[in-house]
Design a protein around this nucleic acid. Structure first.
Lengths: 198, 198
DNA sequence: AAATAATTTAACTAAATAGTTAAACTATTT
DNA sequence: AAATAGTTTAACTATTTAGTTAAATTATTT
């Protein structure tokens, strides 16, 4: 692993966990196993390093769906594919959503410069959904609602983990983990049962 | 309005918007229309002031449901009551969820000391849900899932606003606002259709 | 009127932190 | 072997910020 990769890995870890303000350059240097001078030798400033990490993280959290949309041209199959896939990704990066949403909440203009944001294949999904409605495979639903609901059900348990664990599961960590293990199936069931034609 | 109230209002505004680290004592003093010395005269430290605000905010975001649970002993009616009620509260405090979740993500132990956390009438809700299942008013569902899903569908659009506005609604603010105006009905429909007996 | 409490002013301290610098050293490339 | 790039060390600067202090001023209470 090159030094630059070490730095990026360390910066990702610290920034994602602590945010732009909470992260300290010294901690990133320590995490990378180098010193602060070398950190500035590679990335001139904290802001430059942060931009690098944020852009990378943002591109990761916008799922690239083009493949799965062409292959499985059926909204039900898409949902069954997407939910476990995306949930699994977030499970491996549980602090990513909170990081992105916090930084965007602090500085919403940041999203403007990110080309990937416009790259989400929303229109293809819309076509799939409209087709399923017309064929009476699912009830009428606004595509925006369906997509936001799917994302909400998937992402929320991670950003709200401390509250869910404490209040719903009364501090029992294993109860939360057990809940999360079944989560993909639960989301799919909730979405698909809500889409049954009336 | 007393000076202490002015300070608390200013601190709430600044802390909720910028978080513990992002908030500056000088900015709170300015917002309250006083000076930094007086701020420390009332609240000895930033941490003490923050604790005050966070505790207050946390108690607000845990909905007090006891009344509505006793009166309307029917889970469907409860959902129809709770969703618009809670959505309306968050609409008036759109940064509150992000604030709570970010601070808890940074420091999850903070939740332990908050008595209100244990005060959520989860068991009463469970009884309502189990009763509705037994009477075949709704399909079988884990109470934990139902409650978390309701909260997810309600809260997520606020914490993810910048992403939703930019990616789903392509930067059109009025499209997001229009979506949010119909949101209560959409959530109720999603939840209730998903609960139809199989 | 006197005493007390609230508030301002303005300068101060102490700590944290981003970023710089120069010199020395090590590894790699030419 | 010489030159170059990568890395360390350690001390340094500049800035931001929480928190303090003391004196003066204003408002409120007794």
């Amino acid at each position: 692993m090159t030094t630059e990769e070490q730095i990026v890995n360390a910066a990702r870890k610290v920034f994602v966990r602590k945010g732009l303000q909470g992260a300290k350059m010294q901690e990133i240097a320590d995490e990378a196993g180098i010193n602060k001078a070398l950190l500035h030798y590679y990335f001139r400033s904290k802001d430059k390093l942060f931009d690098h990490i944020f852009t990378e993280a943002f591109q990761q959290i916008i799922p690239s769906l083009r493949q799965s949309l062409n292959e499985k041209a059926d909204i039900v199959i898409f949902i069954q594919f997407f939910v476990p896939f995306y949930l699994n990704f977030i499970q491996k990066n549980p602090y990513l959503p909170q990081f992105i949403m916090h930084e965007l909440s602090q500085n919403p203009e940041r999203i403007a410069g990110l080309a990937h944001a416009q790259n989400f294949p929303f229109d293809s999904l819309k076509v799939l959904i409209d087709k399923a409605i017309k064929e009476q495979q699912i009830r009428f639903v606004e595509p925006e609602n369906l997509i936001i609901n799917m994302l909400a059900l998937t992402i929320f348990p991670f950003v709200a983990r401390p509250m869910i664990e404490q209040i719903i599961f009364k501090g029992k960590q294993e109860a939360y983990e057990n809940f999360m293990q079944k989560r993909a199936d639960d989301i799919i069931q909730t979405i698909l049962t809500s889409l049954r034609p009336i």
